[in-house]
């Protein structure tokens, strides 16, 4: 194997790397996930506005309180669901990985058996 010379790159490997490292599509929910998190970040600047409401009297204070509670609970629920989805995707990836490795090892065993059988027949 010739050592890699950046001035004379191994074109075959470079081409294979470009193919292997092509950009992948992000999950369908990626943009929604970012925007949900941005919205929860965006609550911060509105805090003064909310505080103004909370400082006022009457039904508006209650409405603001209810809205705040709803937003907080909604946010917590969304975060729980997000975490659960991430854990589930990770577990699924492990399952697929394990099954692929199983397949590879079974294939190797089969190839070895066939190879030994061929050797026996040849003798």
């Amino acid at each position: 194997m010739e050592p890699f010379d950046p001035m004379e790159p191994n074109e075959e490997l470079e081409s294979s790397l470009r193919q292997a490292l092509e950009r992948k599509d992000a999950p369908e929910w990626f943009v929604d996930g970012v925007m949900a998190r941005v919205k929860s970040e965006g609550m911060k600047p509105r805090r003064n506005w909310l505080a103004g409401w909370l400082g006022s009297s009457g039904w508006m204070r209650w409405a603001a309180a209810v809205a705040t509670v709803a937003i907080v609970f909604g946010g917590v629920r969304w975060e729980q669901e997000r975490r659960q989805r991430l854990q589930g995707e990770a577990a699924k990836a492990q399952l697929m990985m394990a099954l692929k490795m199983t397949g590879e090892k079974l294939r190797m065993a089969q190839v070895r058996v066939q190879s030994l059988e061929r050797d026996e027949q040849a003798q």
């Binding site: 099954l99 692929k100 199983t102 397949g103 590879e104 079974l106 294939r107 089969q110 058996v113």
Partner: peptide, 8 residues
């Protein structure tokens, strides 16, 4: 699915 051969 995974290229798993038939196990004899």
């Amino acid at each position: 699915q995974f290229g798993i051969p038939k196990v004899q």
